[in-house]
Design a protein around this nucleic acid. Structure first.
Ligand SMILES: NC(=O)c1ccc[n+]([C@@H]2O[C@H](COP(=O)([O-])OP(=O)(O)OC[C@H]3O[C@@H](n4cnc5c(N)ncnc54)[C@H](O)[C@@H]3O)[C@@H](O)[C@H]2O)c1
Ligand SMILES: NC(=O)c1ccc[n+]([C@@H]2O[C@H](COP(=O)([O-])OP(=O)(O)OC[C@H]3O[C@@H](n4cnc5c(N)ncnc54)[C@H](O)[C@@H]3O)[C@@H](O)[C@H]2O)c1
Lengths: 210, 210
DNA sequence: CAAATTATGTGAATAATATCACATAACTAG
DNA sequence: CTAGTTATGTGATATTATTCACATAATTTG
């Protein structure tokens, strides 16, 4: 089943499976069936098998999946067996909270640069040891420190301009927390995170069901 | 086109349209075409028209949509013409950053309760004036302050137990930031926010395209 | 007041995604 | 070594979501 076009939805689920498998591994579970894993991940068992089938055969029929093996395979598929260097742009409320979050490290991500425009912030040292650079140093610092992915946590009004600078610096992955749609060339992959959308979804559900 | 089953994806897009319309309104744009709105939101124009058609006819043929009108209609659809009371559970890094975020207010959401287990935190007053309660007061406080939605920003290990308490207190909407799938009865709607999934997606894209 | 223009609303076509259902393979027990 | 059991891998099917393409209605222009 190789060489088929991989659904986007499959990739996001692989990430969910990975997290669950990590927990299972820590709990010394060494084999798991698609059925049990599906329950833990909140999906259909056949979905898991289909998702994995795009990349190969990782299970043992009549038995299930070896937790450690499958975890390793998924990491391989997602490209998480290497390190990814991150840059945070906008060290306000959210940016600071995120950069303090040690959990990223566990997953192979590492912040190697931080940028802001606020002269009060530029030059300051963050808890993780990083010194905040000015945004107009993005190109230089990104290249020097081999940053792969940029996280945008500036106000919405600054997001597009920051994105432009990141792209110019050669970055081709952006995680955007500002509630605007940013425009980038095809070479750059953007993911948006906006939990006000999720809140709105909840509001809708509560409204219609009451 | 009324009474059809509404796709989930439509609801999340309505939320995106809403934000863009809000920006347009602030910029004193008073009419917009599906084509221009689509470009701003990063979707297909027909998609916008289809999405809206589930709920009625809000545009003027040959002209477009009146920004203020459409904004009002979408708010009505999503149930955002009223106030929604929120409770934050887990006032660590992330929870504190979120609760400080004034933008929620603008959209009709208001934090009316905050909970933690840490005795160091219980009793403390947050910047917005809220005093942190102990988690075992959830049921009482949630009912008293008419909380509609709970936000979970505790460590993953505590998320399920917190969810149980919220459900017991009568809450039927949860926004979960912990990277676990929580189990709740059908009466409760859960949305998960996990940006490590988005990061993983970026890693995958960078891996396959290089 | 036609004719031209514009952009909505929507049925039909297409594409993407999820689920079913079962043949297949591994393991277990007698 | 055979029969029974279990759970994977996958073609077929069902469901859901997106895009096309055009009839329709409002507006503007000559
Ligand atoms: N904080 C939250 O809980 C939350 C929730 C949802 C969405 N968001 C979004 O995340 C973004 C950040 O939110 P926040 O609460 O951290 O805001 P904030 O105002 O606390 O921080 C923004 C930071 O960006 C910096 N900045 C401004 N312009 C810049 C530029 N051109 N280049 C680099 N840095 C620049 C500012 O100096 C500041 O440090 C916003 O777009 C917001 O809408 C935040
Ligand atoms: N901070 C981030 O940037 C980030 C990023 C991704 C995911 N997350 C997730 O968000 C959650 C919170 O992250 P954080 O960085 O704020 O962690 P944190 O440790 O800073 O905060 C957790 C808070 O929850 C409280 N808590 C623990 N058990 C509790 C319980 N049973 N009831 C109520 N409160 C309880 C703790 O006292 C603490 O105040 C975690 O699940 C984390 O994985 C955070």
């Amino acid at each position: 089943m190789k060489f088929a076009k991989i659904p986007m939805a499959t990739i996001t689920r692989l990430s969910v499976y990975m997290r669950t498998l990590q927990d299972l591994l820590e709990d010394d579970v060494d084999v798991i069936s698609s059925e049990r894993l599906a329950r833990l991940c909140g999906v259909n068992p056949a979905q898991i098998r289909k998702d994995l089938a795009y990349f190969g055969e990782f299970g043992v029929r009549g038995v299930g999946y070896r937790v450690g093996d499958l975890l390793g395979q998924i990491k391989e598929i997602l490209g998480l067996t290497r390190r990814w260097n991150l840059a945070m742009v906008g060290l306000g409320n959210l940016g600071s909270a995120l950069i303090r979050h040690a959990n990223f490290l566990k997953h192979g991500y590492m912040f190697t640069a931080a940028f802001d425009v606020d002269p009060q912030k530029v030059g300051k040292r963050l808890p993780n040891g990083l010194v905040i650079n000015h945004v107009n140093e993005i190109e230089e610092v990104v290249k020097e420190r081999e940053v792969n992915v940029g996280l945008i946590t500036t106000p919405a009004s600054a997001a597009q301009s920051v994105a432009n600078q990141l792209v110019l610096a050669g970055i081709n992955g952006i995680l955007n927390f500002a509630p605007v749609q940013i425009q980038v060339p095809d070479c750059c992959h953007v993911e948006n995170v906006d939990f006000t959308i999720s809140l709105d979804t909840i509001a809708y559900h509560l409204s219609v069901s009451s």
